[in-house]
């Protein structure tokens, strides 16, 4: 039972990671790509780590997996935020079909 649940978490996580990669290829500009990669890859990887925790239990590996998942949840959005801000500041244009750019209008 424990094994089945653990492997299910890992499979779901891998699935989300794959969706993130498809998003990285299909979406048009850097900001949309960041959306796909941050969300899907964060939860996908956390799910894999949770699966590891379920499989290994409260041992050396399991506790480290949970700790890594927490750090990932805290740091990966910050990285995405820095990338998006850096891209906008260095003049990367939004996709031509984007509807609004309040950030650019406010003169940043």
């Amino acid at each position: 039972m424990q094994q089945i649940i653990g492997y299910m978490f890992i499979v779901v996580g891998l699935g989300f990671d794959v969706f993130g990669c498809i998003g990285l290829l299909r979406l048009p500009d850097v900001y949309n790509r960041l959306q796909a990669t941050t969300k899907c890859v964060t939860l996908g990887t956390c799910s894999i780590l949770l699966g590891t925790f379920v499989l290994k239990g409260l041992g050396t590996t399991g506790v480290k997996a949970i700790l890594v998942a927490i750090f990932l949840l805290l740091t990966s959005p910050v990285a995405a935020h820095a990338l998006a801000r850096g891209a906008h500041k260095s003049g990367v244009k939004l996709w031509p079909k984007s509807v609004v750019d309040k950030y650019g209008e406010d003169g940043n």
Binding site: Y31, L34, Q35, T38, K39, T42, L43, L73, P77, A80, H81, A84, R85, H88, Y103, N108
Partner: peptide
């Protein structure tokens, strides 16, 4: 905000 549906914080 970054990790919730369809939104990404830029600045």
């Amino acid at each position: 905000i970054t990790l919730t549906p369809g939104t990404l914080c830029v600045d």
